[in-house]
């Protein structure tokens, strides 16, 4: 097979596009005081923020899978009045400023919120200023990425496989778990990775809804932001750590699942 060559204009624009992303990363690497980096990486605060970031973003991805996949299935398969309106509403966090999302979460799940006040009075559960609140905020912002990706996967899959399963006597739940889900595994995986990446980088909704306290609600992006004011070098190091962790996970998973670089 002949190698395809890019037309000059496309090549130049593509290079500019890539540089647009690469240059800020180079800037971060160049300005990082590497002498302090080792200490910062192993400092208790950094490790605490990193641990919290990973735990919260993975939990949020888990919650998004449990709730988002059924939602995507309903959007893709069930016709009902107001479906497109509902879909638009549930994907709104993708375009909403995350801080606004955080405020909306407070109004719903805060101590005086619609549901939050009932949670507090009936069960003594209060979400703001807790790690659970971080997971809430991250799920709120990140789940739409999963829902949209999985819905697209469900719409593009060949539904006749489900017909084949029905002729073989499979009930709906069996079809969903043993045929539909395995067939859309690539979309499921892509959606989960997108969702996780978005959750890992979440800042605005988290600081607004869950607040900021080391070890409880201070995730890496919050630590980076607060450190930027007093100790910019420290924040560069934290940013790089976040970057390396994300890169390792994204490249590693992609390689493993999609079998290509």
């Amino acid at each position: 097979m002949r190698r395809e060559r890019a037309p000059l204009a496309i090549g130049i624009l593509a290079a500019a596009g890539a540089a647009f992303f690469i240059l800020p990363l180079i800037g971060l690497v160049v300005r990082t005081p590497w002498a302090d980096a080792a200490r910062a990486v192993t400092s208790a605060d950094t490790l605490e923020a990193l641990r919290l970031s990973l735990v919260a973003s993975l939990t949020a991805t888990g919650v998004a899978l449990v709730l988002g996949v059924p939602l995507a299935w309903v959007y893709a398969r069930i016709e009902f009045p107001g479906r497109s309106v509902l879909r638009a509403l549930t994907t709104l966090p993708m375009v909403l400023p995350p801080v606004v999302g955080g405020i909306a979460l407070l109004l719903a799940f805060g101590r005086r919120g619609l549901l939050g006040s009932w949670l507090e009075s009936s069960f003594g559960i209060s979400l703001p200023f807790t790690t659970a609140g971080v997971v809430f905020a991250e799920t709120f912002v990140a789940m739409p990425f999963l829902v949209l990706t999985v819905e697209a996967g469900l719409r593009s899959m060949d539904r006749r496989y489900e017909d084949a399963a029905r002729t073989l006597g499979a009930k709906r739940w069996t079809i969903f778990t043993r045929v539909t889900l395995p067939l859309i595994a690539p979309s499921l995986f892509a959606g989960a990775v997108l969702c996780w990446a978005r959750a890992l980088g979440e800042f605005g909704a988290t600081i607004t809804f869950a607040g900021n306290f080391p070890g409880v609600t201070q995730t890496m992006p919050l630590a980076v932001y607060l450190l930027l004011g007093t100790n910019p070098e420290g924040s560069y190091i934290l940013s790089l750590i976040l970057l390396v962790v994300s890169l390792v996970v994204l490249v590693g998973l992609r390689h493993r699942w999609l079998g290509s670089a």
Binding site: F129, G211, N212, F213, Y225
Partner: peptide, 8 residues
């Protein structure tokens, strides 16, 4: 007193 949150 331990604050519940350290706001920005």
């Amino acid at each position: 007193v331990r604050p519940r949150s350290l706001e920005a």
